[in-house]
Simulated assay, not measured.
Amino acid sequence: MKVSRFEDLVVWRESRILVGEIYRTFNASKDFGFKDQIQRAAVSVMNNITEGFKRQSNKEFIRFLYISRASCGEVRSMLYVAKDLKYIDITTFENLHGKALKISISIYNTHKINRELRS
């Protein structure tokens, strides 16, 4: 299947869902610094996938996938902080962390597949 738009990428669609869940989960948080940081990291995941895709260069796409994956790691790390500070319960943590981990793996697989197709 040929992907002609970033919206066709499953990993981008999964990232978009995670952004919505992160925003809804921390919407009422009074820790504005924390809330801002985790929301920005989540948005960075999907936006870097988009930016890399739109660069129309395999090398640039791969570079932005690395950045996106790092942002996904930041989201996962911040979820530990949220759990430790009791901003979220264990069920919410496991749900969001699991989704972020799945996205991270998908980003890696997208990079790997893209590299193999271009070799």
Rank of each mutant, 00 (worst) to 15 (best):
N27T: 02
E94R: 11
L65P: 03
Y23H: 09
H97K: 09
I103T: 04
N47H: 02
A70F: 00
N109R: 08
I38L: 12
V19G: 04
G20W: 01
N109M: 09
K99C: 03
L85D: 07
V81K: 09
L65G: 01
F61W: 07
L101S: 13
K30V: 12
E21D: 13
Y23R: 13
L18I: 00
D31N: 14
R63F: 11
V19K: 01
Y66N: 14
E94P: 02
I103P: 12
Y108E: 13
S68K: 02
F32R: 14
E21M: 08
A28K: 15
L101W: 07
K30R: 15
G98M: 05
F53C: 06
A28R: 14
K35Y: 10
T110N: 06
R63E: 14
K35Q: 15
F53G: 05
K35V: 11
F53R: 03
Q37M: 06
N109A: 01
R55V: 03
T110S: 12
A42H: 05
I62D: 07
E60K: 14
K54D: 15
G98I: 03
S44H: 03
L79R: 07
N109Y: 04
A42E: 05
S77D: 13
E74L: 11
S57W: 13
L96F: 05
S104Q: 06
G98Q: 06
R16I: 02
I103H: 04
I88A: 06
I67L: 13
R16V: 06
I105H: 09
N27W: 09
S71F: 03
L96Q: 05
R63W: 04
S71G: 09
K83I: 00
A100M: 05
E60L: 15
M46V: 08
F61P: 03
H97V: 02
K102D: 13
E60G: 11
R40E: 13
K86Q: 14
E74K: 09
T91D: 15
I88H: 07
V81S: 05
F53T: 04
F34V: 04
N95K: 12
T25Y: 06
S68D: 07
I17H: 01
M78V: 03
E74Y: 09
F32N: 12
E51H: 06
A70E: 04
